[in-house]
Write a protein that binds this DNA or RNA. Structure first.
Length: 107
DNA sequence: GCCATGGCTAGTA
DNA sequence: GCCATGGCTAGTA
């Protein structure tokens, strides 16, 4: 696994239950603010093998970004199961559920 | 080639 | 809508 990929995987694993991060935010935390699409690719291809909490990643608007209806539904109930409440327009209020990881330790 | 983004624009009202 | 961006896995040979 490449270093960037490894950082992304670590960050996604660190998202606590009941919290979410966005694609762009994860990319930025991993050191590459423009690499949101790469986060998408990692989630798509490695969620199963790396046992990632893939459902805790949403887009910048707090929306479920999955195109496939069944997968989107699964993501929603997984999040609701963790206590997250959606708005009437199917969004997650990020100001309430957003997770901000600790900055990397000094040294 | 892939991908579940994100940001900016033209077109419409 | 459209397309620049970005890092590379999963699947095949």
């Amino acid at each position: 696994m490449q270093p960037f990929t490894e950082r992304v995987v670590t960050i996604i694993r660190s998202i606590p239950s009941g919290k979410v991060m966005t694609y762009g935010q994860i990319a930025a935390c991993a050191g590459s603010p423009r690499a949101a699409r790469q986060v998408v690719r990692i989630l798509h291809s490695m969620s199963a093998s790396q046992q990632l909490p893939w459902h805790r990643v949403v887009n910048k608007q707090g929306e479920i970004a999955l195109g496939d209806a069944d997968s989107a539904e699964e993501q929603r109930w997984r999040l609701e199961e963790e206590g997250i409440e959606f708005t009437l327009d199917q969004r997650i209020p990020l100001e309430r559920y957003h997770f901000e990881p600790d900055p990397p330790a000094e040294g």
